[in-house]
Design a protein around this nucleic acid. Structure first.
Ligand SMILES: [Mn+2]
Ligand SMILES: [Mn+2]
Ligand SMILES: [Zn+2]
Ligand SMILES: [Zn+2]
Lengths: 152, 152
DNA sequence: TCCTTTGCAGATAACGGTTATCAAGAAATA
DNA sequence: TATTTCTTGATAACCGTTATCTGCAAAGGA
């Protein structure tokens, strides 16, 4: 079943995050634990504000700064993928913390992970033709999601 | 000769920009002409500040706002490609005003246009697998350019 | 040519998500 | 328990972009 796979992946991701945090001897505060859980469990590429609102339901005194700092920590550990946008906003993927393509709805801002052919061949072609040493990439497809195509 | 090709393309691009501006009955002021020339002639994906500094050598009283407004005009006419970055900065390509891959040096910030296999097949695969109607994309490869690889 | 209308240039204030800063509190260490 | 280090929460600062406003200049009509 699809949902079960997902649950397993989420649990696995949380454990991975937790061990990385512990290995580096960072403290595992309740706020941090909550943020890690949210990132490990979400498939929606949440914004900082999304995460903030969710954390506050469990720990109402949590500061926005704590969310930013925990995300910075996870970035340092390579345990979250940050998708920065030109308007200054960010979206986060805690499930697949490595570069991968995204489909972005220009209307409702939903972001999904498509299962698509790898772009590693393009990366290799790039290296050969430009002489650059490619360390990472970013591939976004913009358009309308099925839901937004229906309601005009 | 490579440089000659480039000159021809630049001239062609400038003419294309000019006719679009005229067709829509926008006024062709000296400042606008200067900015169009800079964008048509540059291969370096200049920043707004780059353009501003160049324009000021010919028209010292030019305001930064005029540069922004002219770029906004060209975007409306689909005559310039804007590459927005998460830090809020932008780079512009007046030569190829349509989505195409870029190689970005993470050290010196140089951006180049690689001649690479098209990503249209990926776009099509995307459409089929996600149900999104893809209208444009963005593909960036990050790494070190040949020059920056040498000097550590 | 004069007058009216419209568009553009230049200057500057406002914007907003992120980052930096700092005091207070909590956890590790001895 | 005392001391050190880390973390939280609150808030100021950041900075390229965007919005706003005023004065000027180019079109267009009579
Ligand atoms: Mn993703
Ligand atoms: Mn380009
Ligand atoms: Zn949508
Ligand atoms: Zn370089």
């Amino acid at each position: 079943m699809k949902n079960q796979e997902r649950s397993l992946r989420h649990e696995s991701r949380l454990n991975q995050m937790l061990s990385r945090v512990r290995d580096r001897h960072f403290r595992l505060t309740p706020q941090r634990m909550a943020i890690l859980q949210i990132l490990a469990n979400s498939e929606e590429h949440p914004t900082v504000e999304d995460i903030y609102q969710q954390v506050k339901t469990r720990f109402p005194t949590t500061s926005l700064a704590t969310v930013y700092k925990t995300i910075a920590l996870l970035k340092e550990l390579d345990e979250v993928l940050e998708l920065g946008f030109p308007d200054g906003s960010n979206r986060y993927d805690g499930n697949r913390p490595y570069p991968h393509p995204h489909a972005i709805c220009t209307k409702c801002k939903k972001i999904m992970d498509p299962e698509i052919s790898s772009v590693d061949e393009l990366s290799e072609e790039m290296r050969q033709k430009t002489g650059y040493t490619i360390s990472f990439h970013r591939l976004d497809f913009f358009g309308l999601c099925p839901e937004c195509q229906d309601k005009p």
